[in-house]
């Protein structure tokens, strides 16, 4: 019989400390704020689940959450199919491969706030290249500082520009890992291009696409810097996504309790959706 030795648990201790200091303890302070009211000076009053109730009932939160889901949904709907199409049309070998890969990776290397500033200037009606061209050459009224629709088009385009490459690179990695024999067999079996995509390429890309969607979901759901620099949440509140609203509440209004409660709800939604998606996508693999 094997003797059971529990000593190995001690080896986990360093990781436990690390996780405690960079995640658990900061998060506990947020939990602490979320159930209390404070006016500074380290004076706290017990508030229970009051803040949570207030946030969950507030129209402001509902509106921000709705905008957040709209934003994330739209960019996923555009970036995932677009990324797959670009990956499919990239060469599989030869001279152009490294060039395509570097060009694809470039937008991802630019810091978020720079991307926001770039697109801000780019689309300004009077001085931006695109803004000037649209307004003064084509005569289309396009002003993302005034028009909510223009603001939305701009942040969506910016995100697509910045992050489609991630989907492309992951999908491309999935595609090049398909052995030639699959394509040859499909040719011999008389499969159409659609059948090759549906029964060979898509199944082989499933795992990397799951990761790509997951990453893009989390990133876009938590997006802050780019829209903050670009539109600052405006015009009005039309592009105030969850994180922008959260920062307004925490730092602008100094409502630490409700902001903490909102952070936790926000975190729970991100975690819940990610978990649900990942479980649904991988449940077939376990069979």
């Amino acid at each position: 019989m094997k003797t059971v030795n529990q000593k190995a648990w001690f080896l986990v201790l360093p990781v436990l400390f690390l996780v405690a200091f960079n995640a658990l303890i900061p998060m506990m302070t947020v939990v602490n704020y979320s159930v209390q009211e404070t006016f500074g000076d380290n004076l706290f009053f017990w508030e229970g689940l009051g803040w949570f109730e207030q946030i969950l009932r507030s129209d402001r939160f509902h509106a921000a959450l709705g905008r957040q889901f709209l934003f994330t949904g739209l960019i996923l709907l555009i970036e995932v199919p677009l990324g797959v199409i670009i990956a499919l049309s990239m060469p599989r070998s030869g001279f152009w491969v490294p060039i395509c890969l570097v060009l694809m990776a470039l937008p991802m290397l630019i810091p978020w706030n720079v991307v926001g500033a770039m697109w801000n200037i780019f689309t300004l009606p009077d001085i931006g290249l695109l803004g000037y061209f649209l307004n003064h050459t084509l005569g289309i009224n396009y002003d993302m500082t005034q028009d909510p629709l223009a603001a939305w088009i701009t942040i969506i385009t910016m995100d697509v520009w910045h992050w489609t490459s991630l989907v492309v690179l992951l999908a491309y990695a999935g595609l090049v890992s398909i052995p030639d024999a699959y394509y040859q067999a499909a040719k011999i079996d008389g499969a159409s291009n659609w059948a090759v995509f549906r029964f060979i390429q898509l199944p082989k890309m499933k795992n990397v696409l799951t990761i790509a969607i997951l990453l893009r979901f989390m990133d876009s759901f938590n997006i802050y810097t780019e829209p903050f620099v670009l539109t600052g949440g405006g015009p009005g509140n039309s592009t105030t996504l969850l994180s922008i609203d959260l920062v307004k509440m925490a730092l602008g209004q100094f409502d630490l309790g409700p902001a903490a409660a909102m952070s936790l709800i926000y975190f729970a939604i991100t975690l819940g959706v990610s978990w649900l998606f990942y479980t649904l996508m991988t449940k077939d693999d376990q069979k």
């Binding site: 052995p179 024999a181 699959y182 040859q184 067999a185 040719k187 011999i188 079996d189 008389g190 499969a191 029964f199 060979i200 199944p203 082989k204």
Partner: peptide, 28 residues
């Protein structure tokens, strides 16, 4: 290849993962 009416079995088994065995056999 399609016009020649030939069949080829490769070194590594090539199957269509998402299909059942029946659909695999029926595919060509």
């Amino acid at each position: 290849p399609t016009e020649r009416n030939i069949a080829q079995v490769f070194q590594f088994p090539v199957i269509y993962d998402t299909m059942t065995v029946r659909d695999n056999l029926a595919f060509p």
